[in-house]
Simulated assay, not measured.
Amino acid sequence: MASVSLDRATTLLGHYIDQNIPAHLWGHPGIGKSEVVQQIATERKAKLIDIRLSMFDPVDLRGLPTTQNGETEWLRPAIWPKDNESTILFFDELDRAAPAVQNAALQIILDRKIGEHALPDQVRIVAAGNGTTDRVGTNRTSNAGNNRFAHIEVEPDVDAWKKWAYQTNLHPLVIAFVSFRPQLLHYSMDDKLAKDRNAKSMPTPRSWSEVAKFADAPDDIQHDLVSGLIGEGPAAEFDGFARTFRNLPSLDGVIADPNGAKVPDDPGSRFAISVGLSVMADASNFNNVVTYARRLPDDFSAMLVTDATRRDNGLYHTQSFSQFARDHQEVFQ
Protein backbone atom coordinates (compact mmCIF):
# COMPACT_ATOMS: atom_id res chain seq x y z
CA MET A 1 0.00 0.00 0.00
CA ALA A 2 1.15 3.54 -0.71
CA SER A 3 2.09 5.83 2.18
CA VAL A 4 0.07 9.01 2.70
CA SER A 5 0.30 12.13 4.84
CA LEU A 6 -1.73 12.60 8.01
CA ASP A 7 -4.04 14.99 6.16
CA ARG A 8 -4.71 12.40 3.48
CA ALA A 9 -5.07 9.65 6.08
CA THR A 10 -7.73 11.71 7.88
CA THR A 11 -9.67 12.10 4.63
CA LEU A 12 -9.44 8.41 3.77
CA LEU A 13 -10.41 7.37 7.28
CA GLY A 14 -13.48 9.59 7.14
CA HIS A 15 -14.67 7.87 3.94
CA TYR A 16 -14.16 4.40 5.42
CA ILE A 17 -16.09 5.41 8.52
CA ASP A 18 -18.93 6.75 6.36
CA GLN A 19 -19.20 3.33 4.70
CA ASN A 20 -18.84 1.43 7.99
CA ILE A 21 -15.62 -0.25 6.85
CA PRO A 22 -13.11 -0.97 9.66
CA ALA A 23 -9.83 0.81 8.93
CA HIS A 24 -6.32 0.20 10.23
CA LEU A 25 -3.75 3.00 10.49
CA TRP A 26 -0.10 1.96 10.25
CA GLY A 27 2.94 4.10 10.97
CA HIS A 28 5.95 4.83 13.16
CA PRO A 29 5.49 5.59 16.86
CA GLY A 30 4.70 9.23 17.61
CA ILE A 31 3.62 10.06 14.07
CA GLY A 32 0.10 11.13 15.08
CA LYS A 33 -2.16 8.15 14.37
CA SER A 34 -4.05 8.48 17.65
CA GLU A 35 -4.48 12.21 17.06
CA VAL A 36 -6.10 11.51 13.67
CA VAL A 37 -8.69 9.26 15.31
CA GLN A 38 -9.31 11.82 18.05
CA GLN A 39 -9.77 14.54 15.43
CA ILE A 40 -12.29 12.44 13.51
CA ALA A 41 -14.24 11.71 16.70
CA THR A 42 -14.27 15.39 17.69
CA GLU A 43 -15.40 16.57 14.25
CA ARG A 44 -18.23 14.02 14.22
CA LYS A 45 -19.19 14.63 17.84
CA ALA A 46 -18.70 10.93 18.46
CA LYS A 47 -17.59 9.30 21.68
CA LEU A 48 -14.10 7.81 21.41
CA ILE A 49 -13.46 4.54 23.21
CA ASP A 50 -9.67 4.15 23.16
CA ILE A 51 -8.62 0.56 23.91
CA ARG A 52 -4.87 -0.07 24.20
CA LEU A 53 -4.95 -3.76 23.36
CA SER A 54 -1.38 -4.39 24.54
CA MET A 55 -2.69 -3.85 28.08
CA PHE A 56 -5.75 -6.10 27.75
CA ASP A 57 -6.60 -9.75 28.31
CA PRO A 58 -9.27 -11.53 26.25
CA VAL A 59 -11.67 -11.50 29.21
CA ASP A 60 -11.46 -7.69 29.27
CA LEU A 61 -13.18 -7.63 25.88
CA ARG A 62 -15.75 -10.37 26.51
CA GLY A 63 -16.47 -9.67 30.17
CA LEU A 64 -16.27 -11.77 33.31
CA PRO A 65 -18.21 -15.04 33.52
CA THR A 66 -21.02 -15.45 36.04
CA THR A 67 -23.78 -17.98 36.62
CA GLN A 68 -27.48 -17.35 36.24
CA ASN A 69 -29.98 -20.16 36.84
CA GLY A 70 -27.24 -22.73 36.59
CA GLU A 71 -25.90 -21.38 33.28
CA THR A 72 -22.76 -19.40 32.50
CA GLU A 73 -23.28 -15.84 31.28
CA TRP A 74 -20.76 -13.14 30.49
CA LEU A 75 -21.07 -9.74 32.10
CA ARG A 76 -20.90 -6.87 29.65
CA PRO A 77 -17.56 -4.98 30.01
CA ALA A 78 -17.82 -1.38 31.20
CA ILE A 79 -15.96 -0.26 28.05
CA TRP A 80 -18.65 -1.70 25.76
CA PRO A 81 -20.31 1.00 23.60
CA LYS A 82 -23.73 2.17 24.72
CA ASP A 83 -26.86 2.09 22.57
CA ASN A 84 -27.96 5.27 20.78
CA GLU A 85 -24.55 6.92 21.10
CA SER A 86 -22.37 7.70 18.07
CA THR A 87 -19.07 5.99 18.91
CA ILE A 88 -15.67 5.23 17.42
CA LEU A 89 -14.24 2.04 18.90
CA PHE A 90 -10.48 2.45 18.60
CA PHE A 91 -8.28 -0.63 18.97
CA ASP A 92 -4.85 0.94 19.40
CA GLU A 93 -1.61 -1.08 19.46
CA LEU A 94 -3.36 -4.03 17.81
CA ASP A 95 -0.09 -5.51 16.63
CA ARG A 96 1.41 -5.30 20.15
CA ALA A 97 -1.39 -7.33 21.68
CA ALA A 98 -1.00 -10.99 22.55
CA PRO A 99 -2.40 -13.33 19.86
CA ALA A 100 -5.35 -14.33 22.08
CA VAL A 101 -6.28 -10.67 22.53
CA GLN A 102 -5.90 -10.02 18.80
CA ASN A 103 -8.27 -12.91 18.10
CA ALA A 104 -10.87 -11.55 20.52
CA ALA A 105 -10.63 -8.08 18.96
CA LEU A 106 -10.83 -9.49 15.43
CA GLN A 107 -14.04 -11.33 16.32
CA ILE A 108 -15.56 -7.98 17.30
CA ILE A 109 -14.25 -6.39 14.10
CA LEU A 110 -15.56 -9.12 11.81
CA ASP A 111 -18.82 -10.10 13.49
CA ARG A 112 -19.49 -6.85 15.41
CA LYS A 113 -20.08 -9.02 18.45
CA ILE A 114 -18.29 -11.21 20.94
CA GLY A 115 -20.20 -13.86 22.83
CA GLU A 116 -23.58 -12.41 23.74
CA HIS A 117 -22.50 -8.79 23.29
CA ALA A 118 -23.30 -7.10 19.94
CA LEU A 119 -22.12 -3.66 18.87
CA PRO A 120 -24.82 -1.03 18.36
CA ASP A 121 -25.34 0.01 14.75
CA GLN A 122 -23.88 3.50 15.23
CA VAL A 123 -20.44 2.20 16.30
CA ARG A 124 -17.54 2.47 13.85
CA ILE A 125 -14.26 0.58 14.24
CA VAL A 126 -10.70 1.88 13.76
CA ALA A 127 -7.41 0.20 14.66
CA ALA A 128 -3.78 1.34 14.71
CA GLY A 129 -0.35 -0.25 14.93
CA ASN A 130 3.32 0.40 14.29
CA GLY A 131 4.27 -2.55 12.12
CA THR A 132 7.20 -4.89 12.67
CA THR A 133 9.86 -2.51 11.29
CA ASP A 134 9.85 -0.37 14.43
CA ARG A 135 11.12 -3.06 16.82
CA VAL A 136 8.65 -2.01 19.52
CA GLY A 137 7.52 -5.46 20.66
CA THR A 138 5.05 -6.02 17.85
CA ASN A 139 3.39 -9.32 17.03
CA ARG A 140 2.66 -10.23 13.46
CA THR A 141 -0.98 -9.85 12.48
CA SER A 142 -2.52 -12.71 10.52
CA ASN A 143 -3.53 -12.50 6.87
CA ALA A 144 -7.08 -13.37 7.88
CA GLY A 145 -7.06 -10.51 10.36
CA ASN A 146 -5.52 -8.07 7.88
CA ASN A 147 -8.25 -8.93 5.36
CA ARG A 148 -10.85 -7.55 7.76
CA PHE A 149 -9.54 -3.99 7.40
CA ALA A 150 -8.94 -1.25 4.92
CA HIS A 151 -5.28 -0.32 5.54
CA ILE A 152 -3.79 3.19 5.60
CA GLU A 153 -0.01 3.63 5.82
CA VAL A 154 0.88 7.01 7.34
CA GLU A 155 4.19 8.76 6.72
CA PRO A 156 5.70 11.95 8.18
CA ASP A 157 4.77 15.04 6.20
CA VAL A 158 6.15 18.44 7.13
CA ASP A 159 3.44 20.51 5.43
CA ALA A 160 0.65 18.52 7.09
CA TRP A 161 2.41 18.80 10.45
CA LYS A 162 2.84 22.56 10.06
CA LYS A 163 -0.84 22.95 9.26
CA TRP A 164 -1.67 21.07 12.46
CA ALA A 165 0.92 23.06 14.43
CA TYR A 166 -0.55 26.40 13.36
CA GLN A 167 -4.08 25.24 14.10
CA THR A 168 -3.10 24.17 17.62
CA ASN A 169 -1.04 27.33 18.29
CA LEU A 170 2.19 25.43 18.78
CA HIS A 171 5.07 27.67 19.80
CA PRO A 172 6.46 29.42 16.67
CA LEU A 173 10.04 28.56 17.66
CA VAL A 174 9.30 24.87 17.16
CA ILE A 175 7.44 25.46 13.90
CA ALA A 176 10.31 27.59 12.61
CA PHE A 177 12.93 25.00 13.55
CA VAL A 178 11.09 22.12 11.88
CA SER A 179 10.65 24.33 8.79
CA PHE A 180 14.42 24.91 8.84
CA ARG A 181 15.29 21.23 9.50
CA PRO A 182 12.39 19.21 8.08
CA GLN A 183 14.42 15.98 8.26
CA LEU A 184 14.14 16.22 12.03
CA LEU A 185 10.35 16.16 12.14
CA HIS A 186 10.58 12.40 12.60
CA TYR A 187 13.55 10.15 13.20
CA SER A 188 12.61 7.95 10.22
CA MET A 189 13.33 10.89 7.90
CA ASP A 190 16.96 11.18 9.07
CA ASP A 191 19.22 8.26 8.11
CA LYS A 192 21.58 8.71 11.05
CA LEU A 193 18.80 8.83 13.63
CA ALA A 194 16.89 5.95 12.04
CA LYS A 195 19.97 3.71 12.26
CA ASP A 196 20.69 4.52 15.90
CA ARG A 197 19.16 1.53 17.67
CA ASN A 198 20.39 2.72 21.07
CA ALA A 199 18.53 6.01 21.01
CA LYS A 200 15.95 6.34 23.78
CA SER A 201 14.79 9.86 22.89
CA MET A 202 14.12 10.86 19.31
CA PRO A 203 12.24 13.52 17.35
CA THR A 204 8.67 12.68 16.39
CA PRO A 205 5.62 14.88 15.81
CA ARG A 206 4.51 13.87 19.31
CA SER A 207 7.82 14.79 20.95
CA TRP A 208 7.95 18.15 19.16
CA SER A 209 4.63 19.05 20.74
CA GLU A 210 6.28 18.32 24.10
CA VAL A 211 9.38 20.37 23.20
CA ALA A 212 7.09 23.35 22.57
CA LYS A 213 6.22 23.36 26.28
CA PHE A 214 9.85 24.29 27.01
CA ALA A 215 10.40 26.75 24.15
CA ASP A 216 10.57 29.61 26.65
CA ALA A 217 12.51 27.75 29.34
CA PRO A 218 15.68 29.40 30.75
CA ASP A 219 18.83 28.77 28.74
CA ASP A 220 20.56 26.97 31.61
CA ILE A 221 17.98 24.17 31.64
CA GLN A 222 16.35 24.21 28.21
CA HIS A 223 18.94 21.98 26.53
CA ASP A 224 18.61 19.20 29.12
CA LEU A 225 14.83 19.35 28.97
CA VAL A 226 14.77 19.22 25.17
CA SER A 227 17.45 16.53 24.80
CA GLY A 228 15.41 14.30 27.10
CA LEU A 229 12.61 14.49 24.56
CA ILE A 230 14.34 14.38 21.16
CA GLY A 231 17.92 13.27 21.81
CA GLU A 232 21.26 15.03 22.15
CA GLY A 233 22.05 15.74 18.48
CA PRO A 234 18.68 17.27 17.51
CA ALA A 235 18.61 19.20 20.81
CA ALA A 236 22.01 20.75 20.07
CA GLU A 237 20.73 21.96 16.70
CA PHE A 238 17.59 23.27 18.36
CA ASP A 239 19.73 25.22 20.87
CA GLY A 240 21.55 27.09 18.14
CA PHE A 241 18.36 27.86 16.28
CA ALA A 242 16.65 29.05 19.48
CA ARG A 243 19.41 31.63 19.97
CA THR A 244 18.85 32.85 16.42
CA PHE A 245 15.10 33.04 17.01
CA ARG A 246 15.52 35.09 20.18
CA ASN A 247 17.82 37.55 18.41
CA LEU A 248 15.38 38.36 15.63
CA PRO A 249 14.47 41.98 14.96
CA SER A 250 11.30 43.05 16.75
CA LEU A 251 8.40 41.53 14.82
CA ASP A 252 6.20 44.45 15.87
CA GLY A 253 8.86 46.74 14.44
CA VAL A 254 8.92 44.78 11.17
CA ILE A 255 5.15 45.06 10.84
CA ALA A 256 5.24 48.78 11.68
CA ASP A 257 7.97 49.50 9.10
CA PRO A 258 7.98 46.69 6.52
CA ASN A 259 9.99 48.69 3.99
CA GLY A 260 12.69 49.79 6.39
CA ALA A 261 13.07 46.77 8.68
CA LYS A 262 16.21 44.69 8.26
CA VAL A 263 16.04 41.52 6.17
CA PRO A 264 18.23 38.73 7.65
CA ASP A 265 21.02 37.28 5.55
CA ASP A 266 21.32 33.72 6.92
CA PRO A 267 18.76 30.96 6.17
CA GLY A 268 18.07 30.16 9.83
CA SER A 269 17.05 33.73 10.60
CA ARG A 270 14.95 33.89 7.45
CA PHE A 271 13.04 30.76 8.47
CA ALA A 272 12.60 32.16 11.96
CA ILE A 273 11.31 35.57 10.91
CA SER A 274 9.02 34.07 8.26
CA VAL A 275 7.33 31.80 10.78
CA GLY A 276 7.24 34.53 13.42
CA LEU A 277 5.45 36.91 11.07
CA SER A 278 3.08 34.22 9.82
CA VAL A 279 1.97 33.66 13.42
CA MET A 280 1.36 37.38 13.97
CA ALA A 281 -0.41 38.01 10.67
CA ASP A 282 -4.06 39.03 10.79
CA ALA A 283 -6.48 41.05 8.69
CA SER A 284 -5.32 44.33 10.23
CA ASN A 285 -1.60 43.94 9.45
CA PHE A 286 -1.49 41.48 6.57
CA ASN A 287 -0.77 44.14 3.98
CA ASN A 288 2.40 45.11 5.87
CA VAL A 289 3.35 41.46 6.38
CA VAL A 290 3.08 40.84 2.64
CA THR A 291 5.04 44.02 1.93
CA TYR A 292 7.92 42.68 4.04
CA ALA A 293 7.54 39.20 2.55
CA ARG A 294 8.18 40.62 -0.91
CA ARG A 295 11.63 41.73 0.28
CA LEU A 296 12.59 38.16 1.18
CA PRO A 297 13.91 35.64 -1.36
CA ASP A 298 11.02 34.02 -3.24
CA ASP A 299 11.05 30.69 -1.38
CA PHE A 300 10.85 32.43 2.00
CA SER A 301 8.24 34.96 0.92
CA ALA A 302 6.05 32.16 -0.44
CA MET A 303 6.47 30.17 2.78
CA LEU A 304 5.56 33.18 4.92
CA VAL A 305 2.38 33.98 3.01
CA THR A 306 1.40 30.31 2.66
CA ASP A 307 1.85 29.67 6.37
CA ALA A 308 -0.07 32.81 7.31
CA THR A 309 -3.05 31.81 5.18
CA ARG A 310 -2.79 28.22 6.39
CA ARG A 311 -3.14 29.48 9.96
CA ASP A 312 -5.88 32.01 9.18
CA ASN A 313 -8.02 31.04 6.19
CA GLY A 314 -9.67 34.46 6.22
CA LEU A 315 -6.46 35.96 4.83
CA TYR A 316 -7.13 34.18 1.53
CA HIS A 317 -9.87 36.74 0.88
CA THR A 318 -7.71 39.83 1.29
CA GLN A 319 -6.54 42.03 -1.56
CA SER A 320 -2.96 41.60 -0.35
CA PHE A 321 -3.10 37.83 -0.82
CA SER A 322 -4.85 38.06 -4.19
CA GLN A 323 -2.13 40.32 -5.55
CA PHE A 324 0.67 38.23 -4.07
CA ALA A 325 -0.87 35.07 -5.53
CA ARG A 326 -1.11 36.66 -8.97
CA ASP A 327 2.55 37.61 -8.75
CA HIS A 328 3.53 34.08 -7.66
CA GLN A 329 1.26 31.92 -9.77
CA GLU A 330 3.85 29.13 -9.84
CA VAL A 331 3.21 28.64 -6.11
CA PHE A 332 -0.53 29.33 -5.81
CA GLN A 333 -1.91 27.93 -9.05
Results as ranks from 00 to 15, higher is better:
Gln102Cys: 02
Val275Glu: 06
Arg311Ala: 12
Arg62Met: 03
Ile40Pro: 05
Phe332Gly: 03
Phe177Leu: 05
Ala308Leu: 05
His28Phe: 15
Asp282Met: 03
Arg140Val: 13
Val263Asn: 00
Ala41Phe: 04
Asn247Phe: 09
Ser3Leu: 07
Asn146Phe: 06
Asp92Asn: 13
Phe177Tyr: 12
Met202Val: 14
Asp111Ala: 11
Thr291Arg: 14
Ser322Thr: 15
Leu225Thr: 02
Ala235Ile: 08
Leu251Glu: 01
Asn288Val: 13
His317Gln: 13
Phe332Tyr: 13
Phe332Met: 10
Asp196Cys: 09
Asn287Thr: 11
Arg206Val: 09
Arg311His: 08
Trp208Leu: 14
His223Tyr: 15
Val211Trp: 00
Ala283His: 07
Asn169Pro: 10
Ser250Arg: 10
Ala118Lys: 13
Asn103Lys: 11
Ser322Lys: 15
Ile79Gly: 03
Ala23Leu: 05
Leu13Gly: 02
Leu225Ala: 05
Glu232Lys: 12
Asp312Tyr: 08
Asp220Ser: 14
Met280Gln: 15
Asn147Val: 03
Glu73Cys: 05
Phe324Gly: 00
Thr132Ile: 11
His186Asn: 14
Ile108Trp: 05
Ser34Trp: 14
Pro120Gln: 04
Ser301Thr: 03
Glu153Pro: 05
His15Tyr: 12
Val226Trp: 03
Arg270Met: 14
Ala194Ile: 05
Ile152Arg: 05
Gln102Ile: 02
Asp312Trp: 04
Ile109Thr: 11
Pro81Met: 05
Gly231Ala: 00
Asn84Glu: 12
Met280Arg: 11
Arg246Cys: 11
Gly137Pro: 12
Glu35His: 14
Phe149Asn: 03
